[in-house]
Design a protein around this nucleic acid. Structure first.
Length: 584
RNA sequence: GUCCCUGUAGCUCAGUGGAUAGAGUGCUGGCCUCCGAAGCCAGAAACGGCAGUUCGAGUCUGCCCAGGGACGCCA
């Protein structure tokens, strides 16, 4: 909103410096860091340092202050500012809060639920996330991926991009065959019960256990895999049926989490094109076929002349069966052909970093110019206390639905005590919104490079920096607005604003740029922090500035501010995939 | 062994090379006779180590220490 003003002043300063013969350095504006003041700031250390290099003997700090003072004197008091001063090498320009406050609130009022959205970039970005395996449980370890991925999608979309949400289902592989073996052996003919995810997960645990403990199992599983490979109708039918059970369970989970996908890819569909592609790779001389002694592999380091960097990528087993890499390469090609992407983002945990670099490099060697547009967003895994890795095969998992159920139960207790007059159905709905918000927020409010240790106490803590705190600020705003009745038609900011009001308006104003920054860095954390800051500023305002009891002019202005604050908070949460209740 | 990530307050985390390093939680104390206390206010408490680059380093570079991860037929 203030870019134009910043540019104008930058120009004035630059031409002034040029006239004075002072070497110019780029001027970058920052928001004044002190609460209760509102404006922009820049420093002249760089300029002073450049001058110093040319042999002038004045200490940089001192000189920066001199230049800042000269610039301040030269600028005088530009339109729209209340104060210009030079402080310790910085030039601080403080806004006339009244006029800028009006602009900010008017912008929020006008854009409403769209406030914060950027202009179209005309870029199409695909984000592949979730990538669950069928025939396995869906647990809290998978949650981070889904929440991170969906938040990234929303952020990129709000930043103005055309986003394609993609999911790549692992519907075939040794894990699936193990499961089928176990089903045929111990559960033949069974239909999934209500608690489907758990049932599927339990069979997988049983299968893994048998596979590891009983050496006679492996040959049986291999034989079954061979039958699938030659498309034995009985096995294919069973595979299709059981796969569907998993897919339906996933759909339920996605609905529960409020996420959706535009395009589903299946691993099983990539098998044939993958095997064809391996032939091409061998023909091109990129892949080396040393079957039957060895597998088919691409000696990346050898080709690139690097050492221990890209290693080698195995693209086909020595028995001719496919691997992940066999399928990931044709998948990438298909994505770009289908959608003409400007960027392709993979949300995959950090353990697959090398693997994905190998894939991207292979695509580059194959001559695809878009290979450089592939980006791996690596996130750290979720562990259990004591650094225990969550593994589907041993069953030491916390199921997603258990977490949601427990969180909802606890939220419901609080909702009931605080809103006894509300009908049961509504209470449950609110508890669900709060519980899910808390879960989602906790998954994206720390950097992807940090391991998340799941423990119940932290996951179910609704106080402090958490979604319920932010939702609560919005609920308080709603409550004021409800009691206020009709909104005033006209309003004016007072000449002098309270410190809490300024901080709040400042943060509301910054929401659009924070969304842009979150998109640029592909980092939802930026936004979770800003949402929290907004809520905190509102709570501060709430305790310091009475609204309903204020004198009429102030009251009307503050009602407008409360409306804008609620909108900004609600929009920030919406981008994170979190709903804002009106009571809680 | 090679490569990647992490190391900030008791604990869990923020921190675009720039002003006084911010929160949450826990601890101590205060605030419901004003719009909802899932809240607010106050207090004590921190950049793993050593060099270097820079006017300026929590941030960049190198080495060391500590923890985690990856490294040819798992996904």
């Amino acid at each position: 909103m203030f870019e134009q003003i910043q540019q104008q002043i930058s120009q004035q300063i630059n031409s002034f410096l040029a006239k004075e013969g002072i070497p110019s350095a780029p001027i970058d504006w920052k928001w004044i860091p002190f609460a209760g003041q509102w404006g922009i700031s820049t420093s002249f250390f760089q300029t002073a340092a450049q001058e110093s290099k040319q042999g002038k003997g004045i200490p940089v700090g001192e000189r920066a202050q001199q230049i800042a003072q000269m610039a301040a004197d030269h600028l005088g008091l530009p339109e729209g500012f209340s104060k210009v001063e030079a402080v310790r090498g910085y030039l601080n320009l403080t806004f006339s809060t009244s006029s800028f406050a009006k602009q900010v609130l008017a912008a929020v009022h006008e854009e409403g639920s769209q406030y914060g959205k950027g202009k179209p970039t005309h870029k199409r970005i695909m984000v592949e996330y979730s990538q669950p395996n069928t025939h396995k449980a869906f647990h809290v370890g998978h949650l981070r991926n889904v929440v991170l991925g969906s938040a990234v999608c929303n952020i990129l979309e709000w930043a103005g991009n055309d986003v394609v949400r993609a999911n790549y289902i692992g519907d075939i592989g040794l894990h699936v065959i193990k499961w089928l073996w176990c089903y045929l052996k111990f559960h033949a003919g069974e239909e999934p019960p209500e608690d489907r995810v758990r049932w599927i997960g339990d069979i997988y645990v049983q299968a893994s256990k048998s596979y590891e403990e009983d050496p006679t199992v492996e040959p049986e599983v291999r034989a079954l895999f061979a039958r699938w490979d030659r498309r034995d109708p009985d096995i294919v039918e069973l595979w299709k049926k059981t796969r569907q059970w998993s897919l339906e369970a996933f759909k339920q989970i996605y609905t529960m989490l409020g996420v959706q996908f535009d395009r589903y890819y299946f691993e099983s569909e990539m098998e044939d094109s993958g095997k064809d592609l391996v032939k091409t790779l061998i023909d091109k001389g990129l892949a080396r076929d040393e079957r039957p002694e060895n597998a088919v592999f691409i000696p990346l380091d050898e080709i690139l002349g690097t050492k221990d960097k890209y290693r080698v990528l195995v693209v086909l087993r020595s028995d001719g069966t496919s691997l992940y890499a066999t399928k990931d390469i044709p998948l990438a090609i298909q994505k770009f052909e289908e959608y003409h992407l400007d960027q392709s983002i993979y949300i995959v945990d950090v353990r697959q970093s090398l693997y994905l670099q190998q894939i991207f490099k292979t695509l580059e060697l194959m001559g695809y110019p878009w290979a450089k547009q592939c980006y791996h967003l690596a996130y750290e895994i979720v562990t259990l206390p004591g650094n225990v890795t969550i593994a589907s095969r041993d069953g030491a998992v916390v199921l997603l639905e258990d977490l949601v159920h427990e969180a909802t139960t606890r939220a419901l207790e609080i909702v009931r005590t605080k809103n006894p007059e509300v009908r049961d159905e509504k209470q449950k709905e609110i508890a669900y919104t709060v519980a899910l918000g808390a879960i989602r927020y906790s998954m994206v409010s720390r950097d992807s490079t940090k391991v998340v240790t799941f423990d119940w106490d932290t996951a179910l803590d609704f106080n402090g920096q958490a979604a319920p705190y932010i939702q609560y600020a919005a609920v308080r705003a709603s409550s004021i607005l409800r009691k206020a009745g009709a909104m005033p038609e006209t309003w004016q900011p007072p000449e002098k604003l309270e410190s809490a009001e300024i901080t709040l308006i400042d943060l509301i104003n910054r929401l659009p740029q924070e969304i842009q920054k979150a998109a640029k860095d592909v980092k939802p954390l930026v936004l979770t922090n800003h949402a929290y800051e907004l809520a905190r500023a509102f709570n501060d305002f709430y305790s310091q500035c009475p609204v309903l009891q204020a004198e009429p002019a102030i009251r009307d202005f503050r009602l407008q501010l409360v409306t804008a604050a609620r909108q900004a908070i609600s929009n920030a949460l919406a981008v994170l995939g979190i709903n804002t209740p009106d009571i809680m």
